[in-house]
Design a protein around this nucleic acid. Structure first.
Lengths: 169, 169
DNA sequence: GTACATCTTCAAGTCGACTCGAAGTCAAGG
DNA sequence: CCTTGACTTCGAGTCGACTTGAAGATGTAC
């Protein structure tokens, strides 16, 4: 029976070992058996991680992937699990697409404005309060020159917020 | 001469005071004169912040907004500044849109798969290393004011990761 | 026996755009 | 005088998905 080290799984999936450990910590991947303290994966792990990455690339968060993998009865077929999660995701995606088209228009409007000074520009002709951003979607387009690391320890801090604001009345 | 407190500017722009101070700290907004240590804004500040928010909503980062505002000769018209920044941004946007459509297709593919177990799924039929994610696109919704849900992001080292991934050697 | 590759855990750093809290200042009102 | 409210600065926290590094253990080759 083929047993893979974490390094081998990393090689086959194109991930770093740290990512695989992170998935385990995050409860997305089940902890594999250990031999002398080292993780030993069966060959299906590669496939599982493939589905995980696929789901991520489709826009699911790790939280959602965890639900996808472990949030259903064991007998629930994969496509039913997808179905249960896909609706909201498709709506988000359509909103994103609409918003991206809006950004395009905005940029082109900016090209068309003839203003010389920033202060003169009438582009944002809303001067009234309370109209928060329509949808504050942000996207990082320009590939960061160095997509350096990022990290955080596991666990669920999940501090709830919604503090009353004191400062402007 | 109308002088506005930071609270008043916040009210008129719909931002929190902390955001306005942050913009100043970040070098996007110029520090206004102080009276008794307190910031006093002229009325044009509201418009300036309007343009800033508009640019952000069009997909520019604060870094880019800073360039837009202060990265050119003072006599360069606003639309020329836009022009200088817009090309790459439009390309990013088109990539984002294409990627979003790809995600849609992926989700629908997931709906169509008949797999019962995650391990069986053939969806991600790439089992080889090195094919990193196409482009690291991040889109997120997370309102500054309200604790709205649904935020997500994606990002990882580029396909040709210049990192000597080695964990040991 | 000793180098070296690979593994282990755990803590802390990263990125962007902020927000929040603490502690202090200041003017007006009762 | 005391409170209230708006302001000040500074530092730390938030979110997600990781990476990086330290310090130590183990496996394999020479």
């Amino acid at each position: 029976m083929e047993q893979l080290s974490i390094g081998e799984v990393a090689r086959r999936t194109g991930l770093r070992t740290s990512a695989i450990r992170y998935y385990e910590d995050a409860g997305v991947l089940p902890p594999p058996p250990r031999v002398n303290g080292r993780r030993r994966y069966g060959p299906e792990a590669v496939r599982t991680i493939g589905v995980l990455r696929f789901a991520q690339q489709a826009g699911f968060t790790l939280d959602e992937v965890r639900t996808l993998f472990h949030g259903f009865g064991a007998e629930t077929p994969l496509h039913e699990r997808w179905e249960a999660l896909a609706q909201a995701k498709l709506r988000d995606l359509d909103a994103l697409i609409a918003r991206a088209h809006g950004m395009r228009r905005a940029i082109e409007a900016g090209l068309g404005c003839g203003c010389v000074r920033v202060e003169d520009c009438v582009l944002p002709d809303h001067d009234h309060a309370g109209d928060g951003d329509p949808y504050p979607v942000r996207y990082a387009g320009s590939p960061p020159a160095r997509p350096r690391a990022s990290s955080r320890s596991r666990s669920r801090p999940a501090t709830s917020r919604s503090k009353p604001r004191s400062e402007g009345s």
